[in-house]
Nucleic acid binder design. Sequence first.
DNA 1: ATATTATATAACCATTTGGTTATATAATAG
DNA 2: CTATTATATAACCAAATGGTTATATAATAT
Lengths: 110, 110
Amino acid sequence: MTRTTYNIYRALADSTRRKILQLLSSGEQTQSDIVKEFNISQPAINKQLRILKEEGFIHERKSGRYRYYQLDRETFEGAYHQMVDEIGAMLDQTLMDLKHYVENKEEDDD
Amino acid sequence: MTRTTYNIYRALADSTRRKILQLLSSGEQTQSDIVKEFNISQPAINKQLRILKEEGFIHERKSGRYRYYQLDRETFEGAYHQMVDEIGAMLDQTLMDLKHYVENKEEDDD
DNA sequence: ATATTATATAACCATTTGGTTATATAATAG
DNA sequence: CTATTATATAACCAAATGGTTATATAATAT
């Protein structure tokens, strides 16, 4: 069944995928358009497109022998905001630091 | 020499590393404190800590037999903002879509 | 009809990843 | 001194990753 639950972190982890997303950010492109921007093979691009598609970050449209790809901005933006919130929360806790220090003060004295 | 240039995308790609960062977001923790929060072995945690440390997202402090870890907020926040900007820019281009359409209109007619 | 182009897929491969167990070393506790 | 605890490291492993080449299929162009 091949577990294909990629999340945005996984999707963004690879630079080829990030570059694909970047390309698509300025508009729809065919697969061959995308391939031309890289020095890797068509099947390699195809694989990364499949991953982005399975994750829902891009949408595929068939027309003749072409496959047009575009960002699925809704999904992508949703995941993006979730990520920004999640990581942002980690950074937004300078006060929590003090809280933790106060709460665990006595433990350090044993 | 093992090339260890992890970027924030790589660092965040793994859920164990994300959880470690989350733990550290509320304050300094020893390695064993961290290990207790997981169901994986101490060497496994050690490896992920090493990665986060090499990337500069956490800082290590030795005290007795303990190793204390804490977020390096400067580095982490810097990388975070860069990421937010980079990905945000991808999403912030609805107008670019139209631009691209206009510019490539004629190409579609051949 | 034939050649060309766009895409898909299979088989393969090396490297990386994220764990494991076993064991060593270092510091502290009793 | 000895036992315990915290951490480090080595050797190992299975699975995932990100490519490759070869080839098939589908659509279009000549």
